[in-house]
Structures are given as C-alpha cells and as structure tokens.
Simulated assay, not measured.
Amino acid sequence: MLLALFFAQVLPAQAHKASDSYLSLTVQGERIEGQWDIALRDLEMAVGLDTNGDAAITWDEVRAHHEAIGAYALARLQLASGNQPCPLRVTQHLIDTHTDGAYAVLRLQGACAAAVTTLDVDYNLLFDIDPQHKGLLRLTHGTTTSSAIFAPDARAQALQVATPARWRQFTDYVRHGVWHIWIGFDHILFLVSLLLPAVLVRRDGKWQGRETLRASVIDVLKIVTAFTLAHSLTLTLAALGVMTLPSRLVESAIAASVILAALNNLWPLVHRWRAAVAFGFGLIHGFGFASVLADLGLPQGALVLSLVGFNVGVELGQLAIVLVFLPLAYALRRGLFYRRVVLTGGSALIALIAVVWLAERVLDLKLLA
C-alpha cells in the first residue's frame, strides 16, 4: 500500500516540468496586444505538427501549420470587457526556446468596445487533452503588472486592470506551488528517499524500528526544515535574477541527487547526516523550482509577491506528503515488509527511475513514455 501510494504515478513521468503556456497581455485603453507561448510538444498533441512522423518537429512543419495553430489557440481564449467581446487575431508566428524546449510564439492584437477596466479571460487551452496543463498570464497596464494562473478548475477569471487583486494573485501562486510539488516527481522521490529511514534506526549494521513516534517526528522535521531552507534560498536568488544555472545542469543534478539519496538507503554511509544531505541537494532543487517562475518573466515587483506565494505552496505540498507518509511508515516500521520491500525495494526502484531521468537529461533522450 505504501509503495503504491508513492510510486503509482511515477512511471509515466518523463520530465520534471509540467505543461504550461505563457500568455502576456498589455492593455492600453481599449487596445490589447500580447504574446502567447505554447509548447510545440503540446501543439503536436492538439494539432499534429510532425507531418512526416520522424519525431522531430521542424520550422517548415510548424510554418505549414500556422493557420491551424492560430485557429486552435484563438478558439480556446476569449477576452471580454463590460460584457462585450474583445476579439483577438494572430499577427505573427515565431519560435522561442524555454527551459523545457521549443515553443510556438503567437503575437496577438485585439480591441474592446471601450477602455478596459476589468478584463474577463476565458482560457481553455489543452484542458481536454492534458488536465494538468496550466496557463500563466502576465497582464500589464501602464506601470502596473499582475498575474493569473488558469487551470481546469479556474478557467474563467475577471482581472482588474488598474488595481489588480494582490491577494488573489498570491493565493493563485500558493495553489500553483502546491500543484508543482505534487507533480514534481523528482522532488517527491528525493524527499521520500530521505524520509524512508526516518522511522528506523541503524544498530549493529541492521535497521530496527524506532521506539517512539517523537524520535521519528524530530528526524523528519530536521530533514524537511533543511530541505526547505536550502531550496527557498536558491529559489529566491534564481527567481530574482541574482544567481542562475543552466537548466540541463540543474535538472541533471536533481536526478543525481535522487539516485544518491536512494542508494544511501541501500548502503547507509551518511544515515545520521541526512539533514545535511537534504540541505546540500536542496540548494540544487531550488533552482529547479525557480525555472517555473523564470519562464513567466514577471517584473520585479510582481515577482516578489508571486515568489512568496509559490514558495508557501511548495511547503504546504511538502507538508501534505509528510502527513500522509509518516503515520503509515511508523505503523509498518517493525515489520520485515517495511525494511525489505518498502525501504530496500522502494529505494532500489527510486534509484532505477532516477538513473533513467539522469540519462534523459544528460543525453537529451526520451526513454520513459
């Protein structure tokens, strides 16, 4: 049961970053201009860009589908103001590269019947194909910038142009942070690898169940606190542009951290120093979290609020995982099933999955379908 809880969704995961699109809109009076970045891999699922079926999407194939891409996208984005529609049109097609691959870039123009004070946005891109998809919106009016996150349960939103709802923006990013940690399988498996021995103690070269729940809780608190402090530090530095690392290096290092944490359960070399391991590798994981916010490209003022909300969401997501994990692990700790199947077998499985991730990220392959 414990293994199923943590690994049931891992095998189909092939990448750290979930499906997102990036929509930037600038409102000036009744006029609207913008840009919409949509991943080519997502458009391939929706429109079918790979004409020759060679698993490589070329510029010629994208260009041949410009009309279909524009029609598909605009049919799933409606803007309105004062109960009057604000029709959009695509003025230019481009290609750009984000941290997770190539994106089609649609330059947009539109107009409303009168000057916009509240913009009603109805976003439905890819939800019928990928229920995990998110639409990240940056809305600019003069010097004021706000943001919103669209999801299957938040498709339609009314956004104040001049005085954006800061609390709503904060709570949107809290929710996004929670969701990101839950679908960030590499982060979850790293944390689980460190938590698996928390209900055990190493004596005479053997694992034995801890005597009290209090001891296990203290061990978990040390690990989670160290991980939180570390990734919060580098997430903040990276998101504010103080320090950045290449995406492939970060994602590869995250996969390597999962491997090492899992192998340490099989050959415990640093059992008593797992909190230090959590802090050290947590610094790398923070750069991974930052990539989600970096692609949105928010200006400094809005980024700080979004960063705090996102970080709070990540911590809440971690807390939910711990609250599910710890009681189950503690209840099973004394049995041979936990030591051999959950700890040993689970750690071996985690290491194997992470090895595949590492190969994918270092060699730019796609091994897990």
Rank of each mutant, 00 (worst) to 15 (best):
M1S: 11
F6N: 07
V10H: 01
V10K: 01
H16C: 02
K17C: 12
K17R: 15
L23C: 02
V27L: 08
E33W: 14
Q35W: 12
I38W: 03
R41F: 15
L43N: 01
L43F: 08
A46L: 09
V47L: 02
G53Y: 10
G53C: 06
G53R: 04
A55N: 08
A55C: 11
A56P: 13
I57L: 04
W59T: 10
D60Q: 14
H65L: 11
H66N: 14
H66G: 13
A73R: 01
A75V: 03
A75L: 03
R76Y: 07
L77W: 01
A80T: 08
A80H: 04
G82H: 00
N83Q: 09
P85L: 06
H93R: 05
L94A: 13
L94D: 12
D96F: 06
T99W: 14
D100A: 04
V105L: 04
G110C: 02
A111T: 12
A113L: 07
T118Y: 06
L125C: 00
D128S: 06
Q132D: 15
H133W: 05
H133D: 09
K134S: 07
G135I: 15
T140L: 15
T143D: 14
T145D: 11
I149N: 01
F150L: 00
D153K: 07
A158N: 08
L159R: 09
Q160P: 15
Q160I: 13
T163D: 11
P164I: 12
A165S: 11
D172N: 09
Y173L: 11
I181Y: 12
D186V: 11
F190C: 03
L191N: 02
S193I: 11
S193Y: 08
L195T: 02
L195Q: 00
L196E: 05
A198G: 05
V199I: 13
R203Y: 08
Q208W: 15
E211D: 08
S216Y: 06
D219T: 08
T228Q: 04
L229R: 02
L229I: 12
H231N: 06
T236A: 08
L237Y: 04
L240D: 15
V242C: 05
T244G: 05
A253K: 00
S257C: 03
L260I: 11
N265I: 10
L266P: 10
W267I: 09
L269A: 03
R272M: 01
R272L: 07
W273V: 00
F281M: 04
F281N: 05
L283V: 13
G286C: 05
A290S: 07
A290P: 11
V292D: 15
A294Q: 04
L298M: 03
Q300M: 12
Q300R: 10
V304F: 15
L307C: 00
L307G: 02
F310L: 03
V314I: 14
Q318H: 02
L323S: 05
V324P: 00
Y330N: 02
L332W: 03
R333W: 12
R334C: 09
Y338K: 00
S347H: 09
A348Y: 05
L349K: 01
L349I: 14
A354S: 01
L358T: 02
L358F: 10
R361N: 05
L365F: 13
